[in-house]
């Protein structure tokens, strides 16, 4: 499967990945509307920074995804064909076991409307995830293993 690779040496900590992720997962999908009118849109990618070192991290879509294992309601699923790990918000009960289990800390509580786990879905309907497409320095790359 195609995954997002992180080239931390070129991450410039601009956080445009976060901004575009938020827009992608907003209702309006329009940057101005999303930021001006919608509240609490969560970015599923997170830029970590210490000094000048930084990188953007999002769900690794692990082979043996601990979050899938930990999920008590069966909401967290790994698609056998695509390998993408997604959270079915209808099934999620908000127990946060996935958050406890994730070794990368990339699953968050979605606070917008209902308490469900929120994580990177690789922008399944796009050719490239928006974080990759909008990284100005190609510090994120979307390619096959």
């Amino acid at each position: 499967m195609k995954k997002i690779y992180i080239k931390e040496e070129y991450c410039i900590a601009c956080r445009l990945c976060e901004i575009y992720c938020q827009v992608k997962h907003s209702k309006s999908k329009k940057i101005l509307k999303a930021f001006k009118n919608e509240t609490d849109i969560l970015s599923r990618v997170l830029v970590e920074e210490i000094g000048y070192n930084s990188f953007a991290i999002q769900c690794r879509h692990c082979e043996d995804a601990p979050c899938v294992e930990a999920c008590i309601s069966g909401a967290m699923q790994k698609n056998k064909n695509t390998g993408i790990v997604t959270c079915d918000e209808k099934k999620c009960v908000g127990c946060w076991m996935c958050i406890m289990a994730c070794p990368y800390g990339v699953i968050k509580r979605d606070l917008s409307e209902k308490k469900v786990a929120s994580k990177c879905d690789l922008c399944g309907d796009e050719e490239y995830p928006v974080c990759v497409r909008n990284c100005p320095n190609e510090a994120l790359q979307f390619k096959d293993i």
Partner: peptide, 18 residues
């Protein structure tokens, strides 16, 4: 633009592949 500098925070901005 990460060109005329040695500051590691800034030099990262020029990805040599690009």
């Amino acid at each position: 633009w990460g060109i005329a500098t040695q500051d590691p925070y800034l030099t990262k901005r020029l990805n040599p592949e690009i």
